[in-house]
Write a protein that binds this DNA or RNA. Sequence first.
DNA 1: TATCTTTAGTTGTAGCTTCAAGTAAAAATC
DNA 2: GATTTTTACTTGAAGCTACAACTAAAGATA
Lengths: 167, 167
Amino acid sequence: MMSPMSELRPRWLSEEERAAWLALLSTTTLLPGALEGPLQQAAKLSLFDYNVLAMLSEASSRTLPMSELAARTSASLSRLSHVVKKLQGRGLVERATHADDARVTAATITAVGAELIRDLAPLHVETVRGLVFDQLDRRDVADLARIGRKIVRGMDAGHWILRTPAP
Amino acid sequence: MMSPMSELRPRWLSEEERAAWLALLSTTTLLPGALEGPLQQAAKLSLFDYNVLAMLSEASSRTLPMSELAARTSASLSRLSHVVKKLQGRGLVERATHADDARVTAATITAVGAELIRDLAPLHVETVRGLVFDQLDRRDVADLARIGRKIVRGMDAGHWILRTPAP
DNA sequence: TATCTTTAGTTGTAGCTTCAAGTAAAAATC
DNA sequence: GATTTTTACTTGAAGCTACAACTAAAGATA
């Protein structure tokens, strides 16, 4: 389903597009590891582990169905299932079958897990600030939100982050 | 080395920062998989495999030292070494010890590898356009380049993409 | 109400990434 | 010129992710 080569849809990218593309690719390659380092050191948690726990700790009643948790962490159900199993083994979350619909598993953060996230949050916020927001001015932050949401929308028009209107 | 809580450096993020943060995190989580799908289907190549081969094919004499290739793909030498070994096993690259400095290994794309990338490039460009640039207007593209370069600069001030001046 | 389809999640496995440790050559220091 | 340090990788193993196949419950259809 490829369009033919034409001036309107050129084969490669313009100079501006290439600069943006390389910057985006480098960012997506480097940022996760840079964000994870401190979490790994402090608590042997991956960035994804942290996000799973953070999403649960922010949820009302500290519980979410696996599907909803997968949506909020942009993960497949398979990936999430493996990780929640691991976190359960560490005593940070629990799993329970939903009463009304036995297909649904609800994950709940434990007191230990909640305490861990509470203790880790300041460190993680500092990492995020240091790597991202300290590098950007106010206009950049607004632009980043706008652009990021557009890219996410292109991949998943119903993505969780789009439920909240743009600020 | 954490700063104390204060109004100047608040504990969590502002509403604008949170929107930008969630958009960035979702993008870095979803985009690599979305970019990789077509490459995986068409040629059993990961996105990183593709980038390695693409960087080699763009290099003069189709050869780069492992360190330079690692820099251009934002990868660790370890990661690159494993992947180049695999690609060598598939006949897509070759490795040779540098004559002047025996510590240096130079990776070279083979004719087969170069042909593969040439054939795959239009597909990949279409994927990149569809996922990224079709979602953005001209201003977004300029903003993305500017913001991405700032974030990369914060992680690695000497990063390869910064050698090229901003357009 | 029996069957079919869809939804929600789990599991096994292959392959990829990271980390720590190791090798060997070159450069620096003594 | 002998030792030490640094540079440029390579390697093995542990853990993570993606994919395909599977289970089981709920909803739809007949």
